[in-house]
């Protein structure tokens, strides 16, 4: 399988180096969704790409050993949860479902959007990593 550790030190070192920057870029994309290009979907996919790069570089076993299925599940449900919180928060604050500008926080639209984007990013990253791990042979039976 391609997910076994490669023999080439070039690949291993490169993936280790690149993965850090990919993750940094993912977090940048996630947190700057309201002010520049990107957002939850893009940031989440790039964060998952960092994990996939590591899996190709250091091998599937070492990568899955470092991933926790429970945390992955928590990541996957984070997006809908964030959305539900914000949506019903709008109702509780006296507005309507998913109304942002009535929330009792400073700059409600910006921070509520950021919150939802972070949830979406967590969900997308969790989904892509779970799919990748499952398709390549599962977490437990390696």
């Amino acid at each position: 399988m391609t997910t076994r550790p490669t023999d080439s030190p070039v690949v291993t070192v490169t993936t280790r180096l690149v993965a850090m920057f990919v993750l940094t870029f993912a977090l940048f994309t996630l947190f700057h969704g309201t002010s520049s290009v990107g957002g939850g979907f893009q940031g989440g996919v790039i964060a998952a790409a960092a994990v996939i790069i590591l899996a190709f570089g250091v091998g599937m076993e070492r990568t899955t050993a470092w991933l926790s299925p429970r945390w992955l599940l928590a990541l996957v449900v984070a997006g809908p949860l964030a959305f539900v919180l914000v949506a019903f928060g709008g109702i509780l604050a006296g507005g309507s479902f998913l109304q942002f500008d009535v929330l009792p926080i400073p700059k409600p639209s910006v921070y509520a959007t950021e919150f939802v984007e972070l949830g979406i990013g967590a969900t997308v990253a969790g989904v892509v990593v779970s799919l990748f791990v499952r398709l390549s042979g599962g977490v437990d039976n390696e």
């Binding site: 969704g33 309201t34 002010s35 520049s36 290009v37 990107g38 957002g39 996957v76 449900v77 997006g79 809908p80 959305f83 914000v86 949506a87 479902f97 998913l98 942002f100 500008d101 700059k107 639209s109 910006v110 509520a112 959007t113 939802v116 984007e117 949830g119 979406i120 969900t123 997308v124 989904v127």
Partner: peptide
Amino acid sequence: TRGIDNVVTAILVVYRGFDTFGEIAVVV
């Protein structure tokens, strides 16, 4: 005026939040 500079994100989450909510439910 809401302070969101990226209009794409504003449309996705603020104006069309219901659609995005459904989308993320589909992903899950």
